[in-house]
């Protein structure tokens, strides 16, 4: 976090983070929501890597973007049908 460029990149990531969180909550379709959530997790991981937390970034990447997305997609697949 030395240069102005990095700072601006950070601010952009933070803005995207808030936007993706907001759209994950507000969007209606289930699969879309889940994909936006995994984008949110990836952004989180990038943010953590920028903020000197490589271990946490790795964990967030594999858990948030990998494992939980798989679980969410499975659950959404199982609850798709006549009900909503």
């Amino acid at each position: 976090m030395n240069s102005l460029g990095e700072y601006i990149a950070l601010i952009i990531i933070l803005a995207c983070l808030v936007l993706s969180a907001l759209s994950a909550v507000l969007i209606r379709g289930q699969i879309t929501t889940i994909i936006v959530l995994s984008v949110f997790s990836v952004l989180c991981a990038v943010l953590f890597a920028m903020l000197q937390a490589v271990d946490v970034a790795m964990a967030e990447a594999v858990i948030g973007a990998g494992f939980l997305t798989a679980l969410f997609v499975t659950a959404a697949d199982k609850t798709r049908g006549q009900g909503s």
Partner: peptide, 25 residues
């Protein structure tokens, strides 16, 4: 919708992680 509630839960939990990482910086 329960799936969307789970998504919100996940977002709420991530927020505290962001807070923790920000503190450590």
């Amino acid at each position: 919708n329960m799936i969307q509630i789970c998504v919100s839960l996940s977002i709420m939990e991530s927020a505290v992680i962001i807070l923790l990482v920000g503190l450590a910086f």
